[in-house]
Structure formats: C-alpha cells, structure tokens
Design a protein around this nucleic acid. Structure first.
Lengths: 194, 194
DNA sequence: ACCTGAACACCGTTCAAGT
DNA sequence: ACCTGAACACCGTTCAAGT
C-alpha cells in the first residue's frame, strides 16, 4: 500500500502544491522530482485528482494527530479549544494551498478513491474531537448550553471563514479594529461566555 | 469598453464556470459559444485569468446592487442584516463556482487588470454597507458595543465559513442540530443580542 | 479596431512493451 | 508488480495576416 515511490510522489506533489497551487502540480514534474517517469504516478494513483486527494488526506491525518497531542497534554479545555481554533486559522494562512485543496470541490466520487474516503473520515474524526471538547466546556458552564454539535459548527465556521477571508484579502489584518482571525476567535468565545 | 462580443464572452465564461468550474472554462469553448474564433478573447482580455476576473467583478457588482436595493426598501435594520447574511450563504450554495472564484487566489496583480481592481472595489463597497448597518444596530442597542468594523468582520466570517463548509460537505445540513448556514447565522445574532 | 488560422509548448491520459 | 517511451487529444498563448 505504501511504497517508497508512492511517498516520494506525495512529497513532490505537496511541494509543488505549496509553491504554486493545484495547477502547478503536473504529473510530469511530480514524476521527475520523484525520480521516475512522467506517467509512473498512474501505477500508484488513478490520476491527478486521486493523487491530490491522497495529499489532502495525509495532511488531514497529520493535523488530527496534532490536535490529539494537544488534548493529551491535559491542558485546561478552555486553553485547548482556543488553541485548536487558532492553530487551524494559522495553518490555513501558512499553507493556503493545502487549505484550499482540502476544502475545495471534489468531483471524484468517494467510491472511486480510497484516499478521498480517508479524507472524509479524517475530517469527521477532527470534528468529533472538537464536539467532545465543547461538550466538556458546556458541562463546566464555560460555554452556553444547547446542542454541542451545533455550537461546534458555529466555532468551526467562524475560524474557517476568518481564515478564508484573510487569504482572500477581504479581511484587513492591519485595518481598523485588528479584525484578524485570532482576534475574531477570541471575540466569539468572549460573546459565548455566559 | 463594453462591446457586444465582450459581453457575449463574459456570458459564455459564466455559463461554463457554473457548469463545470474554472477548469471547464476554456478559451476555445468560450470563443465558440460567443460566435467568434478561439483566440478572439485576447482582443478583449489579457488572458484567461483576466477574463475570469471580469466575470467575478461583474457578479460582485450585481450582488452589491441587490444589497443596495434591500437597504432602500426601508426594512428594519435587524431584518436587513439577517437577510443580507442569509442571502450571502444561499448565493454561495446556489453558485458555488462563482463563490469559489471570487474568494479564490488571484495571482494577477491589481495593476495588471482593471477588472481585478473593480473586484476589490466592489468587495470593499459591500463591506462598507454592512459596517454602516452594524453601526446603526449598535446605536439602537440591538448589537453589543465595540468597533463596528470588527463586529462586522465577525458576522461576515461566520456567514462565509458556514457557506464554505456546507459546500465542502463538512457541515451536515441534515445532521444533528440542524447546523446549516441559516441556523448558524441566527445562532450568532442571538448570542450577540444583549 | 477586431478577427482568423496556423503554430508552439505543455499537459493528462492511454497503451504497448520491457524487467 | 513496477516502470518506460511513444502517441493522442486538448489547452493557453503567440504571431503573421486579413478586413
């Protein structure tokens, strides 16, 4: 399942993605950087989109591991929640192309790609982590009562939107009010604090 | 500035965009649908990206007109704010490719394209409209005090993030808690109501 | 000013063939 | 099982030429 060549192809694809976006990821250059021919990728992935799905899934798996590590550090849940949302926004700004890729439009059916199914699973697992955290904070009275899934969706949507608008330049980080992602996350948590 | 052919090219590009995303917008097909040769677009736009920027700017101008019309209807500001945010999320789900295009990554410098500059202006104007609305609601005590630009950014970021996560399928509209865009917008306004 | 047709470099994908 | 080289269809862009 995981060969040396396959990993090299993923690394090359990720490198090209970060440098110039999806359109800079050409199978020819990916193959060349991995030391194989321009169509060797087809022996490991169904096509370009499947390769990109594998890159996205791997990145999502890494991020889930990071959040899991933060949870095991036994920090207070307030700190973990704020930190997780902030790291999410920081990651989006640092690796905009990975962010855009993961939350972009997949025309591939899940049936056609194991990697895409893994992407969905990883996204779901990350969401579950956050829901559990929100539930804990609700029990402690640090967040308002109500459906924890819905409250989690509110927090995720804000962090996601703030990050995406920052990338698009529609949120002035140096403008009035310091409306950057971290500030908005703090504001929302503040408004939610009963 | 605005010729018959130019408009036909924009219409064709928009049609292809809605049908299959940016990569389905080929200059050859755009030209063909507009009844001209495959490289006639170059007489009206600097290249493919400039054409897409013009499509994006036109759409943004249309949306600004819609919001302006809602404002002139003299509805209560509470209604206008909620309606504007909801329509934003609805529009994103109805025309996902236009949404992705407008808030996507532009490698074009603003100096290289008048259309891209118009895009920035339209985005800024739309933001100004919302800030004025928020300020009015703050004065009436319907929204908490504080920097109106920052509060507007919070509202915009949530609507944007909710829409984008819905498109990505990371927000289950039929899942538990009915965490759809409209619901999240209502929740946030509710939490902000003093 | 606006458009056409040929041409160039590049890309995703397929296929027959090699080890 | 994994890889290569040639080939095909397609695309963005350029250019010389036409009206």
């Amino acid at each position: 399942m995981a060969s040396r060549t396959r990993d090299a192809l993923l690394d090359a694809a990720e490198e090209l993605l970060d440098a110039g976006g999806v359109e800079a990821v050409t199978l020819r250059e990916v193959g060349h950087r991995a030391g194989v021919s321009h169509n060797a990728p087809y022996k490991h992935f169904a096509g370009k989109e499947a390769l990109l799905a594998a890159v996205a899934a791997r990145e999502l798996r890494r991020r889930r591991a990071l959040t899991a590590a933060a949870l095991e550090r036994d920090d207070p849940p307030e700190v973990v929640l704020r930190g997780t949302l902030r790291r999410y926004a920081e990651w989006a700004v640092e690796y905009p192309e990975r962010f855009k890729l993961i939350y972009g439009r997949w025309t591939l059916g899940t049936a056609e790609s194991t990697d895409l199914a893994e992407l969905g699973d990883a996204a779901h697992a990350a969401s579950e982590q956050l829901v559990a955290l929100v539930r804990t904070l609700q029990e402690r009275g640090a967040l308002p009562p109500g459906d924890p899934e819905r409250l989690t969706a509110l927090l995720r949507a804000l962090a996601h939107g703030a990050a995406d608008l920052t990338l698009a330049g529609h949120l002035s980080p140096e403008g009035k009010g310091h409306a950057d992602s971290a500030g908005l996350i703090d504001d929302l948590i503040g408004y939610l604090h009963p």
